[in-house]
Design a protein around this nucleic acid. Structure first.
Lengths: 344, 344
DNA sequence: TTGTAGGCGTTATCAA
DNA sequence: TTGATAACGCCTACAA
């Protein structure tokens, strides 16, 4: 089987092979390859040509070992099956790449052990910097940043952290704005379908919701708060449960768009029309939000900015530059078709 | 600023530090750490304790340099903002991790240059194996597999390739089944909203659609084929355009679920009811399919199996084992609410 | 402008 | 059971 590379491993082309071929020393090859000034143009040409011909590709392993720089950044995310993070990755990758860094993505599924594991391999592989999205490490992060000596930046941590280098959305403010949108439309019985309250965003958005109610003198009714799962299923179940209440809500502020999409479906199953009978507002503004029926009104999070700012912060830290931190970004109300003035 | 790790880089803990501390040689430390039999239990204990205390973490860089194994696999995907691939990643990661491999995900955005770049960095970083999802490299892959000497497996290549190690879905067969489902419901004017025909899946599903028509004696009408973009927007535009035809179709077979979701929206904008006036079927069965209105009928692709089989194949190749290749997986019709018998 | 030699953190092969 | 020592592939003084 000639096509099994394992069977007959192609000998790796190293600077040694090039040196032999070119009849020069290793040092000269190295210099030529890294195009340093102190090498004769002719020799450089020859060496480059040979390298090209042999299909030479430097061993970053060896190179990193001596330079103590890998030009890689580790990106640990909760999961990739979430549009919110799936859109944050490219923004990080793009900036990092144009700055000469390769980014390695790894997932931890909101599991502390797995996240530790990921960080450990990042350390073993000598990444120059780390970005943690939706970290569940909490206070550990700060000490890791310290003890590992690897600059670390967090985006939207799931747990409270004393770490300074954090980029996040002002969840509470956004939640308050979303709720106030509903209030302005005349709704008085507004439900909240939240994320688990052990998560920071879950808590913060719940708090923003309560604040809006408080400010507008709407009594707080705990039976209108349902702890969802930040997915469609939670939203669907929540709406079905809440609409069965003796005095059901007329509006729903959902933790995120997925929850809202589930809520839409729950409403349909209960025979309630959105937005005529029921108003629904989401959070995030993921692509699908514009395509569901009715198109979803939502609070937009600027994920690209989130990724971009975090990457910038990390590059600053790696370079030993001053950097502004922490950073909190605002949200924007996107009105589409899922909210309407209260009719009942 | 005491919290800037860059300012005062913590000295890395190496086996050297441990050796000094324990008063033994480097070799002994190495042996103890890799728990080899030829080291005195007492010494091992002592060394392990010290390593623990110092927070030692081996340098995979150095280790890999000598063992010539990195225990990493590179995973290059088109994009992460696509549920289809977002769900394939975890299945690969899980199997790879339990087999002792760390996987590094990188994106190429269907751009040849970027994909070459990614492969090059994989090579530089000495990954032990590579999985390419939706590769646009075509024939190049086989030679890379050869010349780089790194086992490479492809999942659903976008371009035709002579490479043997491929795992994919039987697109044509699935497309035919989807179309036949529509035909069985009595539809005669069936449109296809496809992906760009330069892609293999785009071509294969189009072909399956034509085959179904042929078999059932339905005349082929090129005006019923619309080249979409595999996203919502393409589906939406397609439906709007096709419903404006003098003799519009009564059913749509969409390249994927995103296209179908867009189609649903396009239908709504044209005042057509699904499934009463129009039947729509998708492909993939992504999570959102169950939550749109009406819930989407679709051809399910077993993405988990795709990832799993590919990883298995790769692990076989890495180990120099025999492996079955190529592999083509079937699809399954999932009937939900978006298709109904023809009424007009 | 070029070559020699030492070292990055490990593992592996010998001796001891 | 342990310790020197030579790789692994590359970079970088320091010499020449």
């Amino acid at each position: 089987m000639g096509d099994r590379p394992t069977g007959n491993p192609t000998q790796r082309v190293t600077i040694k092979s090039i040196a032999r071929e070119a009849g020069v020393s290793l040092a000269t090859v190295s210099r030529a390859l890294n195009d340093r000034p102190d090498v004769h143009p002719a020799t450089r040409e020859r060496i480059l040509a040979i390298a090209q011909e042999l299909g030479y590709s430097p061993s970053e392993l060896a190179r990193s070992l001596v330079t103590r720089r890998t030009h890689t950044v580790g990106l640990a995310v909760r999961t990739l099956s979430d549009m919110w993070v799936a859109r944050i990755v490219p923004s990080i990758e793009e900036l990092a790449r144009t700055s000469g860094y390769e980014v390695f993505v790894s997932t931890h599924y909101a599991d502390v052990e797995q996240e530790r594991r990921v960080l450990k391999t990042f350390h073993s592989r000598h990444v120059d910097g780390i970005i943690l999205v939706s970290s569940v490490l909490g206070a550990e992060v700060a000490s890791l940043h310290q003890s590992l000596g690897i600059p670390t930046v967090q985006i939207s941590p799931l747990l409270p952290t004393p770490h300074r280098y954090v980029v996040q959305t002002r969840d509470s403010e956004g939640a308050q704005a979303a709720t106030e949108h509903l209030i302005r439309l005349g709704h008085g019985r507004i439900a909240h379908i939240g994320a688990p309250t052990w998560t920071l965003p879950g808590r913060d958005r719940l708090q923003g919701y309560r604040q809006a109610l408080d400010i507008h003198g709407i009594p707080w009714d705990p039976s209108l708060v349902y702890e969802g799962d930040a997915h469609e299923i939670g939203g669907m179940e929540a709406v079905q449960a809440l609409l069965s209440l003796p005095n059901p809500p007329t509006a729903f502020f959902c933790f995120n768009d997925l929850t809202a999409v589930g809520a839409l479906r729950g409403a349909r199953l209960k025979g309630a029309r959105v937005p005529q009978d029921l108003s629904v507002i989401g959070f995030d503004d993921v692509p699908i939000a514009s395509y569901v029926d009715p198109p979803l009104s939502t609070m937009r999070q600027d994920v690209v900015a989130l990724g971009w700012r975090a990457t910038h912060m990390l590059l600053d830290l790696i370079a030993g530059r001053e950097t502004q931190a922490p950073i909190a970004l605002g949200t924007e109300l996107v009105e589409r078709g899922s909210c309407a003035p209260r009719t009942r």
